[in-house]
Nucleic acid binder design. Structure first.
Lengths: 340, 340
DNA sequence: CACTCCCGTGAAATCGCTGTCACAACCAGA
DNA sequence: TCTGGTTGTGACAGCGATTTCACGGGAGTG
């Protein structure tokens, strides 16, 4: 910066003022400084600036993985927002428990970001408390934490509407296929189950524990096992509601493989509406991670702006049932084919 | 840091030495300092430290998008590496030309990172030159730039082997389906075409421009059009080699929709081996973005370590043909069904 | 014409840390 | 006892910006 100052024949103070766009610089001097800066290929060091301003010009995000449709969409809509605000994006990927422990031990984001966005973690009270005295706004995304700013999708309502859709098609034996994820890394599961149960209850359909099964994501074999359990019940389901599209697709895949017609014989409903759902023409409950990323980003900008505004507000995003070709009215006994 | 020093009854120099793990601190003092630091929840400010060391403790990556299988995998394997080395990960997402221009105009990474990883951009010479005087190691990933460290997949060989696989199955009329991407954001396309042509030439099969068509990714309709062009040739192909899995899947999808049996009547081969390929049991040429991310990360660490080592080395990663259920021997005229 | 006020600018202190240098204390060898 | 070499620690300068404060010079006011 001293170089620029010398070249433009002004003081470093003036260079600083110019480059930050403060109005108290005469047009003529401004032009000279900008020219000099350009010629010298000069860029201010955020490091040095942050030392005195106390702001780092960086937003940190903590994500369980970078390699998923959900995170990709969310970050992809968050990034341009931050960039437009002149902020950098710092990513902490915390894929397992060891990394997680280390993260909360050292809190590397401390003093190295102006805000932290925590995605999809099922945090303990202790962990939340650690984040509280991080000295920066912390925004919880895809999860809700009491008294802290959170942005999330209404999973209960989503599952409620999804189940109602199946009920409206005449289904009464509706199974719910849960996902067994790495523990502590999401808790939408329980809420979706809750919505499913609420819908059944309000329709007067008795809950049946046999109709709730678990599987692992990304494991066709595990899906086949879950399916087997359901298909060998005394009274098997006519519709399957999977907690995630990926599981739903695995179910469809296994059903088709065994020549059980979808949706003629069994309807399958997913949750998420990721691209895979479109490829398989899967009926599903859509959520929008990109909306979530955007809202979270805007909230972050707001909280960075004025310190104590809006604390503790929760932003709940809607879901939408997207009927496609894997859900259909329940077959009447007469026209119920055994295979496609 | 002054607080910690006072609490531990030592100077800030000693605190600094302790926290950086230098050996010239007596065990007793070290213990006192560490205790004080823990009690005060102290973490050194990278900003301040970098001001004097000149190293930021950050690696920047420039990616066209965060929302793709490829980038997700690559970053997902890069991130743990950096973390283990105590480095932060700074992401610049440059989705369009405007952002790109802005990025090269201001080079926001200047002085704010110790190294830059540039993913999948087809850079102009001018842009490369700009990056050259960024004052930090720049590593080109999923692309190669002469004289600069690059990590990429051998697309020519991949396409060569893929095409050979189809030739070995007896196919002679093999179409190549290119992808029309956003311009300037990848150039694997040309190399894959080249490999395809090489394989045909070495097998003595004449090249036929009619067999090379273009489509857009993520657009089933566009795939249908490309397919229509091929199927209405006087001598239609018996095998389709798509530049990307997503396009291959769209082709399979359209073929099945029109009841043209895959692979009995037409074989389809993809390129990438992304999860979608597995869902559709697509034969494909596999590349490993996670290997690429890891190798690029290790190279970055090395270049940050000793300044002038290994400059200009290129690391070329292999591909593997994965035969699955969408490629089969070409049908003999006799047993060639018109539909499945 | 004198006075005040604002505007544009520069000098200097400051942010939190690292790294150099000096120094005190101790030990070993002469 | 003296010298020379370690070892552990503290004082202090300086990294590159921002920010406060002071100042000079014109414009506006009475």
């Amino acid at each position: 910066m001293a170089d620029v100052a010398e070249r433009a024949g002004v003081s470093t103070s003036t260079v600083s003022r110019t480059l930050r766009g403060l109005s108290t610089v005469s047009p003529e001097v401004r032009a000279r400084v900008e020219k000099a800066a350009r010629e010298l290929n000069f860029a201010v060091s955020r490091q040095a600036a942050s030392l005195v301003t106390g702001r780092t010009g960086t937003v940190a995000v903590m994500v369980p993985t970078l390699n998923s449709w959900f995170m990709g969409s969310a970050l992809s809509s968050l990034a341009p927002l931050l960039r437009a605000a002149g902020l950098q994006l710092n990513v902490y990927e915390i894929p397992d428990l060891a990394e997680r422990t280390a993260f909360f031990e050292h809190l590397p984001a401390r003093r190295n970001a102006d805000a932290l966005l925590v995605f999809s973690f099922d945090l303990t009270d202790e962990e939340t408390a650690r984040l509280d005295d991080l000295g920066m706004p912390v925004i919880y995304v895809s999860q809700h934490v009491d008294g802290r700013p959170s942005v999330y999708v209404d999973d209960v309502a989503g599952a409620l509407h999804g189940t109602r859709h199946l009920l409206n098609l005449g289904h009464r034996r509706i199974a719910f296929v849960q996902t067994q994820g790495a523990s502590g890394f999401s808790f939408s599961s329980d809420e979706r189950l809750l919505g499913y149960q609420q819908a059944l209850t309000e329709a007067g359909v008795p809950l049946d524990d046999d109709l709730v099964v678990s599987t692992r994501v990304g494991d066709k074999r595990a899906a086949a096992e879950a399916l087997g359990t359901l298909l060998s019940l005394r009274e098997p389901p006519t519709a399957l509601f999977a907690e995630q599209d990926e599981v739903a697709v695995a179910l469809v895949w296994n059903l088709r493989k065994t020549r059980i017609a979808v949706p003629e014989r069994i309807s399958v409903l997913g949750f998420d509406d990721q691209p895979l759902a479109d490829w398989f023409d899967l009926s599903t409950v859509a959520q929008s991670p990109s909306d979530m990323g955007r809202e979270a980003g805007e909230l972050a900008l707001k909280l960075i702006g004025d310190a104590e505004a809006e604390h503790g507000r929760h932003l709940v995003l809607p879901t939408h049932v997207i009927p496609r070709s894997t859900t259909a009215p329940v077959a009447q006994p007469a026209d119920q084919p055994l295979s496609e």
